[in-house]
């Protein structure tokens, strides 16, 4: 097989598998940029996956399913926001609780929906003009999900918002130094609430993509640890939406390659790479003396209480 079709195949599959990773990571980046770690990504994703499937199956509209998944993800994240922002509870524990709760609840509600093929999955899209471009066309613009394109565009938009607008400055300042932001008149609580919920919305969409597009059916536990890859990817991407694209592509490619290269490499080796990469990247940043400065928001994981030092 020539190298071109190899490349086209791998990039195409990396995009498909990387799509839910990208959506989830973009959301987590915003939550963490505002200073709130949410380890509940897995829980929010699975709730999104189930609700998207249930709605798409009963109404016949996969798009509606995705929208409901977004709302469900947002509501799930609201629990986390309430606990960590208002009640100033430990963010890590709250996130773990959200994951346990989400996996359990989705499994409980999802009984009876398992093993049914979705009657109307989200259609794949080929972009007419761009698909004709040699190499790049079939790689990027042929037969991908609409959510794949939307995720790529969203990443660019979110990058612009984060680095080129007043909103972005507010978000970053809240995550960097909430006391300073507060003093400057930024509503720390509101921004944290919004960013955490936005993270939930995107995680919900990521889950919905799995159940109405990637493999149009519902199964208990179908996110299969993707939420934790998202956490790793957020670090790997240095909390930067554009780098998240590259990271999602890389991790997606690794997953696909674990099947392509099976005859030569143990698949487990490629599957543990994302987790190892996350640690490695943090360690290298630490070696370089950058410590947690490599994009990590300064007040990450720290609850903010007004009037307290």
């Amino acid at each position: 097989m020539d190298w071109q079709s190899w490349l086209i195949g791998i990039v195409g599959r990396a995009l498909a598998f990387g799509t839910p990773l990208l959506w989830g990571t973009l959301g987590e980046i915003y939550a963490e940029r505002a200073g709130v770690v949410n380890l509940g990504v897995e829980g929010m994703m699975i709730l999104g996956a189930f609700s998207a499937f249930a709605v798409a199956q009963s109404t016949g509209h996969p798009g509606l399913g995705i929208m409901v998944a977004a709302v469900v993800g947002g509501v799930a994240a609201l629990i986390h926001a309430f606990l960590t922002v208002t009640l100033r509870a430990n963010q890590y524990v709250s996130g773990l609780a959200l994951t346990m709760f989400g996996l359990g609840l989705a499994g409980l509600l999802g009984r009876g929906w398992e093993g049914i093929p979705l009657r109307q999955p989200l259609p794949d899209v080929t972009i007419p003009g761009l698909a004709k471009i040699p190499l790049l066309g079939p790689m990027l613009f042929e037969g991908q999900s609409i959510l794949t394109y939307a995720g790529l565009i969203l990443a660019v938009v979110l990058w612009i918002i984060l680095y080129r607008t007043r909103w972005g400055i507010s978000i970053r300042s809240v995550g960097e130094s909430p006391a300073t932001a507060d003093a400057l008149g930024v509503n720390v609580f509101l921004i944290r609430y919004l960013c955490v919920m936005f993270g939930g919305v995107l995680a919900g969409v990521a889950g919905g993509f799995l159940s109405v597009d990637y493999r149009p059916s519902w199964t208990e536990g179908m996110t299969a640890g993707m939420g934790w890859i998202v956490i790793a990817l957020t670090i790997f991407a240095a909390w930067d939406p554009l780098q998240a694209i590259g990271g999602a592509l890389l991790f997606g490619a690794l997953y696909h390659l674990s099947y392509r290269l099976q005859a030569w490499l143990p698949p487990e080796l490629l599957k543990l790479m994302p987790y190892a990469f996350a640690i490695l990247v943090l360690a290298i940043a630490g070696l370089g003396g950058a410590g947690r400065r490599r994009g990590a928001p300064g007040a990450l994981g720290v609850p903010y209480a007004r009037g307290e030092k």
Binding site: G43, I79, L83, L87, R88, A89, N90, V93, S94, L96, A97, L98, T99, M100, F101, G102, L103, G104, L105, A106, G107, L108, E220
Partner: peptide
């Protein structure tokens, strides 16, 4: 999965009432 829901709930309430 009931167990997972219950564990999640206990944890939510535990940290929720911490204050």
């Amino acid at each position: 999965q009931v167990t997972g829901v219950f564990n999640g709930l206990i944890l939510f309430f535990l940290i929720g009432v911490e204050l």
